[in-house]
Computed example of a mutant assay.
Amino acid sequence: MSIKRIEPGARMSGAVVHGNVVYLAGQVGDGKTVTEQSRSALAEVERLLVAAGSNKAKILQTIIYLSDMSTFGEMNAVWESWIDPKNPPARATSQAALATPDYKVEFVVTAALD
């Protein structure tokens, strides 16, 4: 089976396709609030999924990291307005120290191809 790397860099690729599955690197967004960062990061998730030949209706699993669990409701409001309501993925959310203190949320997505 071939492996396709999307937007490879020195440290990581934006996404990797293997077989009929696409694995996205953790996506963080711009902005000062969890709402702004969630919107920005999910727009990047959507862009990478399309680049890989998939879409948000094909998301199998998402792992979400929050720097502060008290923002869970704020992130969920963005998430619930973004996901395909007919095809919600398996999901886990936990609190974690992210790469920099400026990051408030990170999304790690695995999806099927179209």
Results as ranks from 00 to 15, higher is better:
I3F: 08
I3P: 00
K4P: 04
K4M: 10
K4C: 01
P8C: 04
P8E: 05
A10Y: 14
A10P: 11
R11E: 12
R11G: 12
M12T: 11
G14Q: 08
G14D: 09
A15M: 08
V16Q: 04
V21I: 13
V21D: 09
V21K: 14
V22N: 07
V22K: 01
L24R: 04
G26H: 00
G29E: 06
G29N: 04
D30Y: 09
D30R: 09
G31L: 05
G31C: 02
T33L: 09
T33Q: 10
E36T: 00
E36K: 00
E36Y: 06
E36S: 07
Q37P: 00
A41R: 02
A41M: 07
L42A: 04
A43H: 05
A43Y: 11
A43F: 04
V45T: 11
R47N: 11
L49M: 10
A52M: 08
N55T: 09
N55G: 14
A57F: 05
K58R: 15
I59G: 00
Q61N: 14
I63G: 09
I63N: 10
L66M: 01
L66E: 00
S67Q: 07
S67V: 03
S67P: 01
M69D: 14
S70P: 04
F72T: 07
G73R: 12
G73C: 08
G73N: 10
G73M: 05
E74M: 02
M75H: 03
A77E: 14
V78S: 06
W79D: 00
E80I: 01
N87T: 10
A90D: 12
A90Y: 13
R91L: 15
A92Q: 14
T93F: 15
A97I: 11
T100Y: 13
T100E: 11
T100W: 06
T100L: 04
P101V: 07
D102G: 12
D102E: 15
D102H: 13
F107H: 01
V108T: 01
A112T: 04
L113K: 10
L113R: 13
L113Q: 07
